[in-house]
Amino acid sequence: MKDWWKAVFPKGREVVKITDANGYPVSISFGEKGTGKPLFLIHGIGGWSYNWRYNIDTLAKHFRVICFDAKGYGFSDKPLYREKNDHQIIEFKRIISALCDRPAIVVAESLGGLISLAVAQDYPELISDLIVINVPIFPEGLPHWGMSLLSQIPLDLLQVVDLGRITTLFAPLVKEVLAIERRSVLFDPTNFTEEDAYWMSYPYIEFPGTLTKAAEDIQIAVKEMQRNQNYQPNLISKIQKNLAIIKCPTLVLWGEQDSWFSYKQGEKLSKLLPGSQLKIIPNCNHDASSGSPDAVNTAVLEFLGVKKLSKFS
């Protein structure tokens, strides 16, 4: 199979070193394409830069597009130590600061969107424009059986599975399970190809630690939701309460058929974000970036003031 990074980005896969939320140096994999104002594409939980495969070329015609794999995902480092509940917020801030010296546009999906809302609150100088897609801002529970399963397995046990390369031994099964999961969040499941299955499962099969880090973030999310429901201090309620302080132009995109989080949550979120715009995408499930890429690309470019959008790529 071809090197996806080399096929998509002029310089292929690049690496930037940051200090993570625990104070340790980590390597973050990224790719960039295009010139002009920086535009970051932020994936959701369990994903990596490949999630944006249908958006990169179109957006790179107008902006300097930067895709990175969050720590623990894709081709980035997967340290063995346990994470702080706000680690992704801190690390995203440091990645932006390391890769550009001016306020950036941020396009973020699912959990990436929640993290980006927090960054816009805590570090407003970093983000000029914000587009969030299908954000778990008002979660009532985990939306998927696979997440529920991973939330209950001890991380030490998952680490044994990871480091023992058990996922490699059962590579066909891992690929099939992930394919079933990804197809379940597409409006048209037939759009998910064998190549997609190969690349979406690749980090879980080839890079020990990926499964553990994904499970750890899920378990962090569960604890935050439990604290929120028990009216204890938590990141979710903090982000909710501080939505009104976000001043950058913001677009809320939501799939009308999102099976994880209802578009009604998008309507609620938009009302709480002063001056934000809301666009509901028809015939679109939770995985909007790859399931409805033309609609996402059009909405993003229109919001950012790019005209004549009839054809992309």
Rank of each mutant, 00 (worst) to 15 (best):
residue 197 A to R: 13
residue 110 S to H: 01
residue 290 S to Q: 06
residue 245 I to K: 12
residue 256 E to L: 12
residue 181 E to Q: 12
residue 95 I to Y: 00
residue 133 I to C: 03
residue 229 Q to V: 06
residue 125 E to Y: 06
residue 150 L to C: 02
residue 278 L to F: 04
residue 288 A to E: 01
residue 186 L to G: 03
residue 201 S to E: 10
residue 121 Q to K: 03
residue 8 V to R: 11
residue 179 A to H: 05
residue 284 C to F: 00
residue 199 W to V: 08
residue 258 D to I: 08
residue 49 S to V: 15
residue 217 D to F: 10
residue 306 V to I: 15
residue 281 I to F: 03
residue 89 I to F: 04
residue 63 F to R: 01
residue 265 Q to H: 12
residue 8 V to T: 15
residue 59 L to A: 02
residue 32 E to M: 10
residue 131 I to Q: 03
residue 66 I to L: 06
residue 69 D to E: 06
residue 47 G to E: 14
residue 123 Y to F: 14
residue 172 P to Q: 05
residue 269 L to D: 05
residue 183 R to Q: 08
residue 267 E to W: 08
residue 68 F to K: 03
residue 288 A to I: 03
residue 180 I to F: 09
residue 250 T to N: 08
residue 309 L to S: 09
residue 13 R to T: 14
residue 296 V to H: 01
residue 184 S to L: 07
residue 160 V to Q: 08
residue 149 L to K: 09
residue 149 L to Y: 09
residue 3 D to R: 09
residue 181 E to T: 15
residue 160 V to H: 10
residue 8 V to P: 15
residue 186 L to D: 04
residue 311 K to M: 12
residue 168 T to A: 07
residue 80 L to S: 15
residue 207 F to W: 11
residue 184 S to Y: 03
residue 25 P to V: 11
residue 292 S to R: 00
residue 100 C to T: 14
residue 231 Y to P: 06
residue 293 P to M: 02
residue 211 L to F: 09
residue 72 G to L: 00
residue 41 L to D: 00
residue 37 K to Q: 13
residue 224 E to N: 07
residue 235 L to K: 05
residue 132 V to A: 00
residue 191 N to W: 09
residue 305 G to N: 09
residue 65 V to E: 00
residue 303 F to Q: 05
residue 36 G to Y: 04
residue 277 Q to R: 12
residue 153 I to N: 01
residue 121 Q to S: 07
residue 85 N to Q: 12
residue 94 R to H: 09
residue 90 I to N: 00
residue 120 A to Y: 00
residue 126 L to V: 07
residue 13 R to P: 14
residue 117 L to S: 01
residue 64 R to N: 10
residue 278 L to T: 06
residue 284 C to A: 04
residue 292 S to F: 04
residue 16 V to Q: 15
residue 295 A to C: 06
residue 35 T to F: 13
residue 36 G to L: 09
residue 34 G to N: 00
residue 174 V to A: 02
residue 42 I to C: 10
residue 237 S to M: 11
residue 96 I to E: 00
residue 130 L to G: 05
residue 15 V to R: 12
residue 119 V to A: 01
residue 282 P to R: 04
residue 81 Y to F: 14
residue 279 K to R: 13
residue 169 L to S: 07
residue 271 K to Q: 15
residue 297 N to P: 04
residue 158 L to I: 05
residue 63 F to H: 02
residue 205 I to G: 02
residue 229 Q to G: 12
residue 225 M to G: 03
residue 266 G to T: 15
residue 122 D to Q: 12
residue 151 S to M: 05
residue 34 G to Q: 06
residue 17 K to T: 15
